[in-house]
Computed example of a mutant assay.
Amino acid sequence: MAAIKEPWGLSVLGAGSVSAEPRLAHVDLAVDLLAPTPKAAFAEAGAAVTRLRSVLREHGIPDSDVSGSRLQLTSQYRGYGADRTFHGYACVATYTVRTEALAGLELLIEDAVTAGANRVDAVRFEVDDKPAMRDEARHRAVAAARRKAEVYAQACGLRLGPVIHIEDVDPESLDVRSHGRRTGGDPEDDGSLTPGSVRVEAAVLLGFALLPE
């Protein structure tokens, strides 16, 4: 039978979340081509990049909302050991496109792929003020923890005392066996993102003193 070796009060976990419609999206695209010679690889990738830039401007996206890498060239091989053979030269350029025109996002991606961005690595939806959503989620997490603590205290015939411990918790790794704590990771980076909404979560571990009725 489990025993509390060092009784001190009441420890409870609270979680809260806030959802909002996305206001902008970040699309990770890449031009990724293979050619038999470096010259051909650079030429084909350069032409694809030019077409991609033109398409983005046609969609009203300024160059300032497009961040990209330089063309990178690597040798590609197939097989291993004695069976290893040269496959060609891969030329890659990656881009992240920021847009607030969510209604035209599907067409933008289709046109970008047609222009030569043959890899779509990710589509991330964001809100205007995620820090404010995070703060609200934390307020809700604290309120949830306090409500839970009040129920426990009342059920035990006690009064809830002041908070004597506050611990931020990563909401993505909640586990009843460890109060949701995780080694490593940054809870500032969490949040479940979907095209329909952006959900920001928070969790907190609160410790309360207990007082007699």
Rank of each mutant, 00 (worst) to 15 (best):
L29R: 06
D129E: 14
L160F: 00
A122T: 08
I4N: 10
T99N: 10
K39P: 00
R23E: 15
K130A: 12
R98Q: 04
E213R: 13
S192V: 11
V176T: 06
T94G: 05
V204C: 01
L108R: 00
E58R: 14
H87K: 14
T99G: 06
L56C: 01
V55K: 02
Q72M: 05
A35L: 11
S178H: 13
G191P: 05
V31Q: 11
K39E: 14
D135E: 12
R70F: 13
D65K: 05
V31A: 11
E58W: 05
E188W: 05
L105W: 01
D28P: 06
W8H: 09
R134F: 07
R182I: 11
M133A: 01
S69K: 03
T85S: 14
A145S: 08
A48E: 09
G88P: 09
A144H: 09
E188L: 07
T94D: 13
G14K: 10
A115Q: 11
V31I: 10
G79S: 10
L210A: 03
G88H: 02
S173Q: 10
R51W: 08
G207P: 07
R23Q: 13
V142A: 01
A90R: 15
P171Y: 05
A203R: 03
S11C: 03
Y89R: 12
L29M: 06
W8I: 11
R124L: 13
A35W: 08
E136G: 02
R182C: 12
A122D: 15
I164V: 08
S67W: 11
L211K: 05
A25V: 10
D32A: 14
V169L: 10
P22R: 04
D121P: 00
G116H: 14
T114S: 04
R53E: 14
L193E: 08
S54C: 02
